[in-house]
Amino acid sequence: MTNEKTPDSKASPKSFVAAVASDARKSPVRVAFVTRRTSAQVQAYDEPKLQSFPEVLFRVAIAIEVLAIILVLISLFFNAPLEGLADASHTPNPAKAPWYFLGLQELLHYFPPVVAGVLVPTLVVLALIVIPYFNINVEADGLFTKDRDKRLRIFWAVSVTFCVFLLVFDVIVALVPTLITVALMAYAATATPKSSSKFRRSLAAKPLSFWIMSWFLFELAVLTTVGTLFRGPGWSWVLPWRS
Protein backbone atom coordinates (compact mmCIF):
# COMPACT_ATOMS: atom_id res chain seq x y z
CA MET A 1 0.00 0.00 0.00
CA THR A 2 2.63 2.42 0.87
CA ASN A 3 4.22 2.09 -2.55
CA GLU A 4 1.11 3.17 -4.29
CA LYS A 5 1.24 6.59 -5.89
CA THR A 6 -1.50 8.77 -7.05
CA PRO A 7 -1.08 10.32 -10.49
CA ASP A 8 -0.93 13.74 -8.93
CA SER A 9 2.09 12.82 -6.98
CA LYS A 10 4.27 13.59 -10.00
CA ALA A 11 3.82 17.27 -9.27
CA SER A 12 5.38 17.10 -5.85
CA PRO A 13 6.42 13.55 -5.25
CA LYS A 14 7.83 14.13 -1.82
CA SER A 15 4.69 15.42 -0.20
CA PHE A 16 2.47 12.63 -1.36
CA VAL A 17 4.57 9.56 -1.07
CA ALA A 18 2.66 8.13 1.82
CA ALA A 19 -0.76 8.16 0.31
CA VAL A 20 -2.39 6.46 3.22
CA ALA A 21 -3.25 8.65 6.17
CA SER A 22 -0.81 11.30 5.23
CA ASP A 23 -1.00 14.42 7.29
CA ALA A 24 2.07 15.84 5.70
CA ARG A 25 0.35 19.12 5.07
CA LYS A 26 -2.39 20.25 7.32
CA SER A 27 -3.90 22.54 4.81
CA PRO A 28 -3.27 21.82 1.13
CA VAL A 29 -3.34 24.97 -0.90
CA ARG A 30 -4.49 25.31 -4.39
CA VAL A 31 -1.94 26.48 -6.86
CA ALA A 32 -3.37 28.46 -9.72
CA PHE A 33 -1.46 30.06 -12.53
CA VAL A 34 -3.09 33.34 -13.18
CA THR A 35 -1.82 34.87 -16.34
CA ARG A 36 -2.69 38.32 -17.51
CA ARG A 37 -5.18 37.02 -19.99
CA THR A 38 -7.21 35.07 -17.43
CA SER A 39 -10.32 37.02 -16.69
CA ALA A 40 -10.99 35.49 -13.33
CA GLN A 41 -10.57 37.99 -10.58
CA VAL A 42 -10.06 35.45 -7.88
CA GLN A 43 -8.72 36.95 -4.76
CA ALA A 44 -7.77 34.86 -1.82
CA TYR A 45 -8.68 35.90 1.64
CA ASP A 46 -7.46 33.84 4.43
CA GLU A 47 -10.32 32.76 6.51
CA PRO A 48 -11.38 29.48 8.17
CA LYS A 49 -12.27 26.85 5.65
CA LEU A 50 -13.76 23.40 5.81
CA GLN A 51 -12.98 20.38 3.72
CA SER A 52 -15.89 19.73 1.34
CA PHE A 53 -15.49 16.07 2.07
CA PRO A 54 -17.03 14.91 4.26
CA GLU A 55 -18.37 17.84 6.26
CA VAL A 56 -20.02 19.89 3.51
CA LEU A 57 -21.23 16.86 1.61
CA PHE A 58 -22.92 15.56 4.72
CA ARG A 59 -24.63 18.86 5.26
CA VAL A 60 -25.73 18.92 1.64
CA ALA A 61 -27.04 15.40 1.97
CA ILE A 62 -28.91 16.26 5.17
CA ALA A 63 -30.43 19.36 3.57
CA ILE A 64 -31.64 17.35 0.60
CA GLU A 65 -32.97 14.62 2.85
CA VAL A 66 -34.91 17.10 4.96
CA LEU A 67 -36.40 18.49 1.77
CA ALA A 68 -37.21 14.95 0.62
CA ILE A 69 -38.87 14.24 3.96
CA ILE A 70 -41.06 17.31 3.60
CA LEU A 71 -41.99 16.44 0.01
CA VAL A 72 -42.68 12.80 0.88
CA LEU A 73 -44.94 13.92 3.72
CA ILE A 74 -46.81 16.26 1.40
CA SER A 75 -47.12 13.50 -1.20
CA LEU A 76 -48.49 11.07 1.37
CA PHE A 77 -51.31 13.40 2.32
CA PHE A 78 -52.09 15.47 -0.75
CA ASN A 79 -52.90 13.95 -4.10
CA ALA A 80 -51.74 15.56 -7.32
CA PRO A 81 -54.67 17.14 -9.12
CA LEU A 82 -56.26 15.23 -11.97
CA GLU A 83 -59.31 16.27 -13.94
CA GLY A 84 -61.35 14.69 -16.70
CA LEU A 85 -59.93 13.43 -19.98
CA ALA A 86 -58.61 16.18 -22.25
CA ASP A 87 -61.39 17.35 -24.52
CA ALA A 88 -60.81 20.04 -27.08
CA SER A 89 -64.52 20.75 -27.42
CA HIS A 90 -65.17 21.50 -23.75
CA THR A 91 -63.35 24.60 -22.59
CA PRO A 92 -63.22 24.94 -18.83
CA ASN A 93 -63.88 28.40 -17.54
CA PRO A 94 -61.41 29.75 -16.67
CA ALA A 95 -58.68 27.88 -18.54
CA LYS A 96 -55.55 28.52 -16.52
CA ALA A 97 -51.88 28.05 -17.31
CA PRO A 98 -49.53 26.51 -14.70
CA TRP A 99 -49.23 28.76 -11.66
CA TYR A 100 -45.84 30.19 -12.56
CA PHE A 101 -47.30 31.55 -15.80
CA LEU A 102 -50.40 33.00 -14.18
CA GLY A 103 -48.67 36.33 -13.63
CA LEU A 104 -48.26 36.51 -17.40
CA GLN A 105 -51.82 35.36 -17.96
CA GLU A 106 -53.00 38.09 -15.62
CA LEU A 107 -51.12 40.65 -17.74
CA LEU A 108 -52.60 39.07 -20.85
CA HIS A 109 -55.97 40.08 -19.47
CA TYR A 110 -54.95 43.76 -19.74
CA PHE A 111 -52.52 44.00 -22.61
CA PRO A 112 -52.47 42.67 -26.17
CA PRO A 113 -50.74 39.27 -26.46
CA VAL A 114 -47.72 40.79 -28.19
CA VAL A 115 -47.03 42.95 -25.16
CA ALA A 116 -47.94 40.64 -22.30
CA GLY A 117 -47.01 37.36 -23.92
CA VAL A 118 -43.90 38.24 -25.87
CA LEU A 119 -42.50 41.66 -25.02
CA VAL A 120 -42.69 41.48 -21.24
CA PRO A 121 -41.17 37.99 -20.81
CA THR A 122 -38.46 38.75 -23.36
CA LEU A 123 -37.59 41.98 -21.58
CA VAL A 124 -37.55 40.25 -18.21
CA VAL A 125 -35.20 37.51 -19.40
CA LEU A 126 -32.95 40.04 -21.13
CA ALA A 127 -32.94 42.23 -18.05
CA LEU A 128 -32.01 39.28 -15.86
CA ILE A 129 -29.17 38.32 -18.18
CA VAL A 130 -27.66 41.77 -18.42
CA ILE A 131 -27.84 42.55 -14.70
CA PRO A 132 -24.25 41.50 -13.91
CA TYR A 133 -22.86 43.18 -17.04
CA PHE A 134 -24.12 46.64 -16.21
CA ASN A 135 -22.36 47.53 -13.08
CA ILE A 136 -25.58 48.97 -11.75
CA ASN A 137 -25.29 47.33 -8.42
CA VAL A 138 -21.58 47.03 -8.15
CA GLU A 139 -21.10 50.32 -6.47
CA ALA A 140 -23.86 49.38 -4.09
CA ASP A 141 -24.56 53.00 -3.33
CA GLY A 142 -27.85 54.26 -2.00
CA LEU A 143 -29.99 55.50 -4.89
CA PHE A 144 -30.43 59.03 -3.57
CA THR A 145 -27.08 59.54 -1.90
CA LYS A 146 -25.52 61.15 -4.97
CA ASP A 147 -27.06 63.77 -7.31
CA ARG A 148 -30.07 63.77 -5.06
CA ASP A 149 -32.16 66.46 -6.76
CA LYS A 150 -31.57 65.27 -10.28
CA ARG A 151 -32.28 61.67 -9.37
CA LEU A 152 -35.40 62.61 -7.46
CA ARG A 153 -36.65 64.49 -10.50
CA ILE A 154 -36.02 61.52 -12.79
CA PHE A 155 -37.52 59.15 -10.21
CA TRP A 156 -40.76 61.12 -9.98
CA ALA A 157 -41.01 61.58 -13.72
CA VAL A 158 -40.55 57.86 -14.39
CA SER A 159 -42.84 56.77 -11.54
CA VAL A 160 -45.70 59.08 -12.46
CA THR A 161 -45.45 58.23 -16.17
CA PHE A 162 -45.49 54.52 -15.41
CA CYS A 163 -48.41 54.78 -12.98
CA VAL A 164 -50.41 56.78 -15.52
CA PHE A 165 -49.59 54.14 -18.12
CA LEU A 166 -50.88 51.41 -15.83
CA LEU A 167 -53.98 53.47 -15.06
CA VAL A 168 -54.70 53.97 -18.75
CA PHE A 169 -54.68 50.21 -19.25
CA ASP A 170 -56.68 49.79 -16.04
CA VAL A 171 -54.06 47.45 -14.56
CA ILE A 172 -55.01 48.04 -10.94
CA VAL A 173 -53.45 44.73 -9.90
CA ALA A 174 -50.02 45.85 -11.09
CA LEU A 175 -50.55 49.42 -9.96
CA VAL A 176 -50.85 48.62 -6.28
CA PRO A 177 -47.39 47.03 -5.86
CA THR A 178 -45.94 49.82 -8.01
CA LEU A 179 -47.45 52.51 -5.80
CA ILE A 180 -46.21 50.79 -2.66
CA THR A 181 -42.72 50.50 -4.12
CA VAL A 182 -42.78 54.16 -5.18
CA ALA A 183 -43.95 55.16 -1.72
CA LEU A 184 -41.13 53.20 -0.11
CA MET A 185 -38.63 54.79 -2.51
CA ALA A 186 -39.98 58.24 -1.74
CA TYR A 187 -39.61 57.42 1.92
CA ALA A 188 -36.08 56.23 1.30
CA ALA A 189 -35.32 59.53 -0.42
CA THR A 190 -36.00 61.36 2.83
CA ALA A 191 -33.52 59.20 4.69
CA THR A 192 -29.73 59.39 4.78
CA PRO A 193 -27.12 56.82 5.83
CA LYS A 194 -26.95 58.76 9.07
CA SER A 195 -30.64 58.56 9.90
CA SER A 196 -31.51 57.57 13.41
CA SER A 197 -33.65 54.48 12.77
CA LYS A 198 -32.01 51.37 11.44
CA PHE A 199 -34.81 50.77 8.97
CA ARG A 200 -34.40 54.22 7.45
CA ARG A 201 -30.67 53.79 7.25
CA SER A 202 -30.99 50.52 5.42
CA LEU A 203 -33.59 51.97 3.02
CA ALA A 204 -31.31 54.89 2.27
CA ALA A 205 -28.52 52.49 1.38
CA LYS A 206 -30.51 50.56 -1.21
CA PRO A 207 -29.25 51.01 -4.76
CA LEU A 208 -31.46 51.39 -7.83
CA SER A 209 -31.08 47.73 -8.83
CA PHE A 210 -32.47 46.70 -5.45
CA TRP A 211 -35.55 48.79 -6.02
CA ILE A 212 -36.12 47.47 -9.51
CA MET A 213 -35.63 43.85 -8.50
CA SER A 214 -37.82 44.24 -5.42
CA TRP A 215 -40.51 45.84 -7.51
CA PHE A 216 -40.25 42.94 -9.97
CA LEU A 217 -40.47 40.38 -7.16
CA PHE A 218 -43.41 42.22 -5.64
CA GLU A 219 -45.25 42.34 -8.96
CA LEU A 220 -44.45 38.71 -9.68
CA ALA A 221 -45.79 37.62 -6.30
CA VAL A 222 -48.95 39.74 -6.49
CA LEU A 223 -49.80 38.90 -10.11
CA THR A 224 -49.20 35.20 -9.59
CA THR A 225 -51.25 35.14 -6.40
CA VAL A 226 -54.09 37.03 -8.01
CA GLY A 227 -54.03 34.83 -11.10
CA THR A 228 -53.90 31.63 -9.07
CA LEU A 229 -56.37 32.31 -6.32
CA PHE A 230 -58.54 35.28 -7.14
CA ARG A 231 -59.58 34.68 -10.72
CA GLY A 232 -62.67 32.73 -11.68
CA PRO A 233 -64.95 32.22 -14.69
CA GLY A 234 -64.31 34.75 -17.45
CA TRP A 235 -61.23 35.92 -15.50
CA SER A 236 -63.54 37.70 -13.09
CA TRP A 237 -62.70 38.34 -9.47
CA VAL A 238 -63.52 35.52 -7.07
CA LEU A 239 -62.62 34.79 -3.49
CA PRO A 240 -60.79 31.46 -3.13
CA TRP A 241 -62.62 30.57 0.08
CA ARG A 242 -65.99 30.96 -1.61
CA SER A 243 -66.34 28.40 -4.35
Binding site: P54, E55, F58, R59, A61, I62, E65, V66, A68, I69, V72
Partner: peptide, 13 residues
Protein backbone atom coordinates in the same frame (compact mmCIF):
# COMPACT_ATOMS: atom_id res chain seq x y z
CA UNK B 1 -22.40 15.81 14.39
CA UNK B 2 -23.03 15.55 10.70
CA UNK B 3 -22.58 11.79 10.54
CA UNK B 4 -25.21 10.94 13.11
CA UNK B 5 -27.48 13.72 11.84
CA UNK B 6 -27.16 12.22 8.38
CA UNK B 7 -27.84 8.78 9.79
CA UNK B 8 -30.97 9.84 11.59
CA UNK B 9 -32.44 11.92 8.78
CA UNK B 10 -31.76 9.04 6.40
CA UNK B 11 -33.58 6.71 8.76
CA UNK B 12 -36.59 9.04 8.97
CA UNK B 13 -36.67 9.41 5.21
Amino acid sequence: NSVSAFGWTSLIL
